[in-house]
Every structure is written in structure tokens, then in C-alpha cells.
């Protein structure tokens, strides 16, 4: 028996993203951001997108290209403090922004990936993040109902992958990637290195390939992946 081959081209993988899609995007700052998939999404110009990401990258990087091109309708993020363009777009009403506590965003995505409907948490219950959210009582304590997040597409960045879509990550480039890689109908992974089946030891696999739909090997790492000199 042999595991299926899911490796494909950049163009073909991103062409599967429909207009108006909800897209999970991995990364926390630079590490783990799928810059090449995002560049191709900017080139193919799908619009009315809802992006779910920890942060809005920095001006001129990552999802900022999509915001600048007017492709984004809504952002679900934990903060966007490092991207003045994103803050301006929010303040001018060009994009809608939903803020989520960082660990709760992670859990909502994990719940989506695990086939659950929602999580219960007291995080943010005393803050304005609780506004408009359903409250239920659990063992005598009030809890917010935070709906699971499951998306049309997930774009993730791996350090190493095999053609079946088994993925491994590097250092703090993990962040949201393994969670997002479970939580979408169409999971597209870009990888710095594509090894043959068996080249990634079963013990080293962090995302099992059964969650992944397409694998794109990066021919080079653009400037965006490099060290940011502030």
C-alpha cells in the first residue's frame, strides 16, 4: 500500500480558494506565515475574504498585501498593533475587525478542527469582548459561549512535509499552524522542504497528512521570510 500524493503547484492550490472564502492563515509575526501562498492569493485576486490570523503582519508583508488590494472584507485577529495600514483600514471602515483573546482564538480553531460546536470559557467575561456573546452557567459559574471556527480554507507554513501532507514545523513557527491545519475544508500547506514518503519519521510528524489536501513545495524563500530589521 502507498499513501496518496498531494503535491501540487502554487497556482493550482490557490486557485481552489473561492471568492468570499473564510481563510485561516498561520503565523505569529514572521515565523510560520505562509508568505508565498498569500502572494499568490494577492496575484489571483480572490475578493471579499474573511481572514483569521493571530496578527495582521506588518505593513508591506503577508496579509497586508491583501488588505491593501481591497481583497479583505473582515479580519478575525488577536491584535494588529504592528500594522499601521490595517489599523487605518479598520478606522476608516474599509475592513471589519473582530478581536479575539489569543488563546481563545486558538481554542475556537482547535474546536473547529475537532468537530466540536463551541467552547465555554470565562476569559474576557468582565471585558467588552463579552459584548453580544451568549452566557451559560456551568457548575455555578457564568461562562461565555465561544463558537468553534471552521473555515473554507487554511493556509499553513511547514518546514518539512512529505507528499501525503504530513507536516513538521520549526521553533516558534508552529504557533497557529497545527491548529489551523485541522480546521478547514481545504487545507493548503506550503513547505520549505518536501521529502519523499518515509523521509519524515512517523514520530516527527506534527500534523498528520490525513488533515491536509494540498502540499506546495517552495522553490525559494522570499525576503519576507527573513530577519526583520527594525
Amino acid at each position: 500500500m502507498k499513501l496518496p500524493n498531494k503535491s501540487t503547484t502554487l497556482e493550482e492550490a490557490v486557485a481552489a480558494i473561492p471568492q468570499g472564502a473564510t481563510v485561516l492563515v498561520g503565523g505569529f509575526g514572521v515565523p510560520g506565515t505562509p508568505f508565498t501562498l498569500l502572494r499568490e492569493l494577492a496575484r489571483q485576486d480572490q475578493r471579499e475574504l474573511v481572514l483569521v490570523k493571530n496578527d495582521a503582519n506588518e505593513a508591506g508583508m503577508g496579509i497586508d498585501h491583501l488588505i491593501a488590494a481591497g481583497q479583505v472584507r473582515k479580519l478575525i485577529v488577536t491584535h494588529l498593533g504592528l500594522n499601521a495600514n490595517a489599523i487605518a483600514a479598520m478606522n476608516e471602515g474599509k475592513i471589519e475587525v473582530e478581536f479575539c483573546a489569543q488563546g481563545i482564538l486558538a481554542e475556537r480553531i482547535r474546536a473547529g478542527g475537532a468537530g466540536l460546536g463551541a467552547i465555554l470559557t470565562d476569559i474576557g467575561i468582565d471585558t467588552e469582548l463579552a459584548k453580544g456573546k451568549q452566557v451559560v452557567e456551568m457548575e455555578g459559574r457564568p461562562m461565555l459561549v465561544e463558537p468553534a471556527l471552521r473555515a473554507d480554507v487554511a493556509l499553513v507554513h511547514a518546514t518539512t512535509a512529505d507528499p501525503f501532507g504530513n507536516l513538521a514545523y520549526a521553533a516558534t513557527a508552529r504557533n497557529f499552524n497545527p491548529l489551523m491545519a485541522m480546521a478547514a475544508k481545504q487545507v493548503i500547506a506550503e513547505t520549505e522542504t518536501l521529502v519523499p514518503l518515509g523521509g519524515l519519521a512517523a514520530d516527527a510528524v506534527e500534523t498528520p497528512g490525513a488533515f491536509v489536501d494540498q502540499v506546495v513545495e517552495l522553490s525559494e524563500l522570499s525576503q519576507e521570510y527573513g530577519i526583520v530589521r527594525r
Partner: peptide
């Protein structure tokens, strides 16, 4: 800019 992880 959003609270990031500060609330938790």
C-alpha cells in the same frame, strides 16, 4: 490594536 494574550 487588540489585546493579544493580555486578557488571559
Amino acid at each position: 490594536p487588540g489585546a493579544g494574550g493580555a486578557i488571559e
